[in-house]
């Protein structure tokens, strides 16, 4: 069995084993705690950079859990793409925008919010309950899910095995995702691009200030050819803090 992180996956399990070795158990609980705490911090932190970093920590924890689940290549990708790529993009954007958070919680609709949180909690509890029931020893569903005891087969979760899937059974989704990525790249460029004149002036301003000399750029302005919404610009939400 090729393994990227031999330390955590050395324990070869024999079929029928009931008690887990202490190492993986401890590893699971530590990683789970890391993941959950990281996620909660990411959601609750006021500081954006702090939130991003907490999320990165959470993703590292997830990568560790993937290793425990013999998904070695996926763990690597999780670290590379998520923690290394996507989250860096987040950090980059956060730093570029450099915004202070006035009030982190969207409390304007308390009732709706409470309803939503209640629904989310119900979903978590219920899904957790169901997934618990679906796990090994969970009865009918578990048996229907063809859950197997014992260690995974040779080569499980390796690059070669994954690649095998991607170039046979998953060829079409694989190609489709590649097209999706191209579209996303082009779309991101188009969306983030700005006309030179606007960009220079807007980004020179201190954060949270509105440049009254310069008309605020509005998508409708381009359509209508109307410039110079000075008065309106001052009243725009988010512009007058």
């Amino acid at each position: 069995m090729t393994s990227l992180l031999p330390l955590l996956s050395t324990a070869q399990v024999t079929p029928g084993e009931v008690e887990a070795p202490l190492g993986p158990q401890v590893a699971f609980w530590v990683l789970a705690a890391l993941t959950v705490v990281g996620a909660m911090l990411a959601v609750t932190r006021r500081n954006l950079i702090g939130a991003v970093m907490s999320l990165v920590a959470s993703f590292f924890g997830l990568a560790g859990l993937y290793l425990l689940l013999s998904a070695h290549f996926l763990a690597a990708i999780q670290v590379l793409v998520y923690a290394g790529g996507i989250m860096v993009l987040f950090v980059f954007v956060v730093m570029v925008l450099n915004q202070e958070e006035a009030e982190p919680w969207a409390l304007r609709h308390v009732f709706g919010l409470a309803l939503g949180v209640a629904a989310a909690v119900y979903l978590a509890v219920r899904l957790g309950q169901l997934l618990w029931a679906a796990g090994p020893g969970g009865g009918e569903l578990a048996s229907r899910l063809r859950i197997r005891e014992g260690a995974p087969p040779q080569g499980y979760g390796t690059v070669a095995a994954i690649g095998d899937y991607f170039f046979t059974e998953f060829l079409f989704p694989f190609e489709a995702v590649s097209i999706l990525l191209v579209i996303a790249v082009v779309g991101a460029v188009v969306l983030a691009r700005t006309t030179v004149a606007k960009a220079t002036t807007v980004y020179e301003l201190p954060p949270g200030e509105v440049d009254l000399r310069q008309p605020q750029h509005d998508a409708r302005d381009e359509v209508l050819g109307v410039l110079g919404h000075h008065a309106q610009a001052a009243n725009r939400p988010g512009g007058g803090h």
């Binding site: 609709h109 919010l113 309803l115 629904a119 119900y122 979903l123």
Partner: peptide, 23 residues
């Protein structure tokens, strides 16, 4: 116009479906 309120709707709907199908 607030996306988050819409999401509340999605969540509540999902929870409702879950409740109706399982509980």
């Amino acid at each position: 116009g607030e996306v988050q309120r819409y999401l509340v709707g999605v969540l509540v709907g999902t929870a409702g479906i879950l409740w109706v199908t399982t509980t």
